[in-house]
Design a protein around this nucleic acid. Sequence first.
DNA 1: TATTGTTATACTCTATAACTATA
DNA 2: TATAGTTATAGAGTATAACAATA
Lengths: 151, 151
Amino acid sequence: MSTNRLDERNTIRSTERSLPIALLRAREVVMEPIREMLSKSQISEQKWRVLRVVEELGPIEQSAVAKQACLLLPSLTRLIQSMEQEGLLERREDEQDRRKSLVSITDNGKELVKTHLQESKEIFEKLEKNFGSYNYYRLLDLLEELQSMKL
Amino acid sequence: MSTNRLDERNTIRSTERSLPIALLRAREVVMEPIREMLSKSQISEQKWRVLRVVEELGPIEQSAVAKQACLLLPSLTRLIQSMEQEGLLERREDEQDRRKSLVSITDNGKELVKTHLQESKEIFEKLEKNFGSYNYYRLLDLLEELQSMKL
DNA sequence: TATTGTTATACTCTATAACTATA
DNA sequence: TATAGTTATAGAGTATAACAATA
């Protein structure tokens, strides 16, 4: 890569070297096969994200889900209500603080995650193979570090 | 980083190690100060992206803008109509192929980009400083490579 | 008084299909 | 017959504010 870094500092970055745009374009590349996968079970990208977060961290309060899934709380309220009706998630009051409700994944929800497990693995194995293992994990490490950064 | 990579291969990835989610979360971190910046001139994130792409690559046909700015063509049609009315962009017919129209940035559009140039520079300089120059450019390189990949 | 979550609203983007004009 | 772009439409998310219940 022969990018002139002085140039990057003295003018507005080209869109290829703009971090927000680069992150978005990269995400579109990665999401394409995932979207195709999810279309089979009629679950939206956002619901899938909520499901994954709740599976991993639940029982978890809704503000925390919103943060982890990059959604606003009002959007999440309706998503969770809808996913509750679909039997993917369930809520119960927090006994310590009754303003909160704790969201958990149901057996049906776990089943839905399982449905996509194999295909999901294949998608990312292919990606890892084409992109290179080293690049793949280096990218994940950098993204993780960036996420945890204070600006 | 002590991630066990065998684990990552044998189960669904934790959301921290999920590339789509990590890309989204990282983007949210980076976009926060940019959104604040753009709110001052009442331009949406998408319009800003279109403006940047057209400035860099224009005169450019709309399908190409859509691809570069990660927007669908129907969404773009209305964005561009609106930005044309706002005097930020202009369109003319392609003389070789009259189905196409070529989009260019206007002087007003350039002016708007210029308005944000200094603040934008400061945001990314701060980010580069906190994240580390090496990490910053390594991340951009990896994202650029990922974008150009065939899955 | 502050926080958690809900509701309401207006706006915007998404996704798909149908359509027009041109090639 | 295919492509570039537009229009229409339904659905979903965004953003903000106002609100209820609880702390």
